[in-house]
């Protein structure tokens, strides 16, 4: 069987794969938008002067980071929704519970990693800056918002880009709970048409090109906004 490029360019199988690519991009996009602020909050919790908040931050990061994403997916799909009251459950199940569960799992998982990157970015800013802010009368949050975070952002962007890359590739795990993303559609083409090489070549090229674009954006940012030495 020769490689049938046409199969990837027109027809039902093409439509399935494009549909999968769209959904993968959508899930990655929404997850990124949700995970970033959550990660910021968790990072601040971990650096907070209040011990209880620090503990909450540690618990969040460690409990999520130390369990495989696959287990998170299965839990948020088969486990967690079953604990909800019946009427809410029925409403959820009538919608696209697969995509919802996958997004929740990915958001928490990505946020745990991003929180650690943001925290180390903040810690990378000399503590003298923080002390200067506080001694000039800024509050903890004020010092963070006006003095530390703008500087930390430049340090943090490269690791965050790499977490976004991971997020993009991790969307493929959602195939396990029946989400019709790119890998799922590739498997569907494989079992309907026996065209494994074509289907997975398409998926690989999609993952690779989106990843390379993200890496390119990261490089551009680093070039345009280099880390300033204090």
């Amino acid at each position: 069987m020769a490689f049938d490029l046409n199969l990837l360019l027109v027809g039902t199988y093409h439509d399935w794969l494009i549909q999968g690519l769209r959904l993968s991009l959508g899930i990655a996009g929404i997850t990124l938008v949700l995970a970033l602020p959550l990660a910021m909050v968790v990072a601040l919790f971990r650096l907070s002067p209040v011990a209880a908040l620090r503990w909450l931050g540690v618990m969040f990061v460690e409990s999520i980071r130390n369990v495989p994403l696959l287990a998170h997916m299965l839990f948020w799909y088969f486990g967690a929704p079953e604990l909800l009251p019946d009427s809410l459950k029925r409403w959820l199940y009538a919608g696209n519970i697969e995509v919802l569960s996958a997004t929740v799992a990915l958001t928490l998982y990505t946020a745990a990693y991003m929180a650690e990157d943001i925290r180390s970015g903040i810690r990378g800013i000399s503590s003298g800056q923080f002390e200067a802010g506080r001694s000039l009368g800024f509050s903890f949050l004020g010092t963070m918002r006006l003095i530390i975070l703008p500087q930390a952002l430049r340090v943090t962007i490269p690791p965050l880009v790499s977490q976004t890359l991971n997020l993009w590739k991790n969307t493929s795990i959602a195939t396990i709970i029946g989400v019709g993303e790119l890998m799922y559609q590739a498997a569907k083409v494989e079992s309907s048409a026996f065209r494994s090489a074509e289907a997975f070549a398409f998926a690989t090229i999609c993952y690779l090109s989106v990843s390379l674009i993200l890496t390119g954006l990261g490089l551009f940012y680093r070039h345009r906004f280099p880390v300033r030495s204090a």
């Binding site: 088969f78 697969e98 396990i176 709970i177 029946g178 019709g180 799922y184 498997a187 569907k188």
Partner: peptide, 11 residues
Amino acid sequence: VTFETSLQAFI
């Protein structure tokens, strides 16, 4: 909607 095993679909 498809799953890895038929048991998951049944659940």
